[in-house]
Design a protein around this nucleic acid. Structure first.
Lengths: 350, 350
DNA sequence: CTGAAAGCGCTTACAG
DNA sequence: CTGAAAGCGCTTACAG
């Protein structure tokens, strides 16, 4: 309780005890390297002197490992932290890291600084989530660090993802069992140039190697073709950000079409889009599913506990996070993994 | 593109260029300490050799600063990441850190390891959120690190919070303007021992220095007394975790009371509780606000974009996060700060 | 404007 | 079972 003149170090402690620094280090790191009695004495003295263990900065320099794992999110931290899917993913990562005594550093490939801060290179491994970051960002990551990508591929690196195309094929098949008069698709971040609204032939779409939503669209299109509907004739909209605020104007534009033009089936690429559609449709007195059927993707909790419960594809984002974390820590062989999805039939499209 | 034999260091680079390591270091850290021409040459050579700047681990040992700020969350990361209020808070923190070239490390006082991993001590500062952690956890934090608490006080440390009592007084006054027949209070984590259900006189409540919800209750009680209602006669329930799953059984118990016992006004301590009540009440065919009025706290987006919009207290959690981050970084004087709140009158209690 | 040297606090072969 | 010594990769007074 005296004023701390200087922070106590392992060396101080060794001198105090009359043993070498190696022995003190061993007391903390390799209990088998010294007698229990001596270890006891060292740990006891340490706690009396307020020494809480070897300094993490020095240890990480010496060993080369920090026990920090970084997750690089495609979107801003503000967006990601408030997005249910990304949050669940992070939960899964955190769960495994925590159990292994590791710690989670949050990064975004949209840092305002333009690039990842140097301090990030302290991490032992990087989980890159959601979108291919710029090559320069990727190049700046320490060469020896391990890397796992999630929801997209980096050549030569292991990846974790779900089979978006098959899942979307399945849900669209379900929806099309009841023939729609005017089906429509609401995409998520699918255009090469930003577009928050109707997609026209003039819009270039991102490729399947750049975004998972392209695979989702392929699934929808396959199902439509199977049912004799020309995909090219099905109107598409695009949403730039998976939030109520950004979705709302696009959905409003769709719903405010004249009765005989308004879609009666909306194949949406996320639950957030679908929930926005539900909210705005109800405000307009449209009945779901009688006037408008809606399918979506993700299976977040919010879509399931208020009626109408969403018909959606559940992807286990928590498990995705766990898998990525296990791979990064070497608990699981670092090989490409495909997680399965589950079709949930709710009330929005029975 | 050759096989990386060994990672290149600042020393290698200096040798390669025929300058001292000090000069290379200065080229990266103190541009004013060398001629622009030399600096250019050094940086050019560095990027050609694939040297991405000084190693973060070594730099942090040498300087004593890591440019990492840790947030210690009261709840598990899994819970916190999926809670709108905590997520918004973290957004605010991340926004400021990012702008300052700092990085965010996520910790929980509920780590499964029982205590914060040693690697956490790498952080330059700690933002402790939501609840007083155990003294032992607090004691293990590096003595020289800065510390800001949020939503509770640590003696001698700066804190950021909102005036919970005044806000709850205000919202309860609003609700009581229409005299309720059977008001009730749904508390959040207010009992000393875990209790997910009705609070009886046998339950000890946490003190105001331990939890913000105690201050919220005081606000409710003051308003009730003002309106001539004996607070002791108002039934109270407690919710252990702010999630739909944990809330639901308690809310169901409340709503399933006989008609003449069921509350007609629910003063809830969070929007999540209120949203659960809305969902379950609607399932039972109860009309809001005609049969049941509901007030809450937080002002999360989800409570505002579907009808009935919640009558609630909006606290600016993002700003709370920004404030805490600014204090930790020394951008703002580290003094106790009280954020204001805003009463939102929605349809759940007009 | 530039460089030689000390040292941040630890861990780890290695020798005894 | 224990200790002396090297060195992880850097930054920073300090001297020139």
């Amino acid at each position: 309780m005296t004023a701390p003149t200087r922070r106590i170090t392992l060396k101080d402690l060794a001198r105090e005890l009359g043993v070498s620094t190696a022995t003190v280090s061993n007391a903390f790191n390799r209990p088998d390297q010294l007698s229990p009695a001596l270890r006891e004495r060292i740990l006891g003295e340490a706690s009396r002197l307020g020494y809480h263990g070897p300094d993490a900065k020095a240890r990480s320099l010496r060993t080369g490992r920090s026990r920090i794992i970084a997750v690089i999110l495609a979107e801003s931290l503000t967006y990601s932290l408030n997005d249910a899917v990304a949050s669940e993913f992070l939960s899964g990562v955190a769960e495994v890291l925590d159990a292994q005594g590791h710690t989670l550093l949050l990064l975004s490939s949209r840092q305002t600084q333009g690039q990842i801060p140097g301090s990030a290179s302290m991490a032992d491994g990087f989980i890159v989530y959601g979108l291919m970051p710029s090559p320069s960002l990727l190049g700046r990551l320490p060469a020896q660090a391990s890397l796992v990508s999630v929801d997209f591929d980096i050549a030569g690196r292991p990846t974790v993802h779900v089979d978006n195309e098959a899942a979307c094929l399945a849900i669209a098949r379900h929806a099309l069992r009841t023939p729609p008069r005017r089906p429509a698709i609401v995409n998520l971040r699918l255009t090469a140039e930003p577009c928050n609204g109707r997609i026209t032939p003039a819009h270039a779409l991102l490729g399947a190697e750049q975004t998972i939503t392209r695979s989702r669209l392929t699934g929808f299109h396959r199902a439509l073709a199977e049912h004799g509907i020309d995909p090219a004739g099905v109107p598409m909209w695009n949403i730039e950000e998976n939030t109520f605020e950004v979705c709302a104007p696009v959905i409003e534009a769709i719903l405010d079409s004249p009765d005989d033009e308004r879609p009666d089936l909306l194949l949406c690429m996320s639950d957030r889009i679908a929930l926005t559609a539900v909210t705005l449709a109800e405000q307009r007195g449209l009945r779901i599913p009688e006037d408008l059927r809606i399918t979506s993707f993700d299976g977040i909790a919010e879509g399931q506990y208020r009626s109408p419960r969403l018909t959606t594809v559940r992807q286990d984002s928590v498990e995705k996070g766990r898998m990525a974390a296990r791979m990064i820590l070497g608990l699981t062989p670092a090989v490409d993994s495909l997680l399965s999805t589950e079709l949930i039939i709710g009330e929005s499209c029975p």
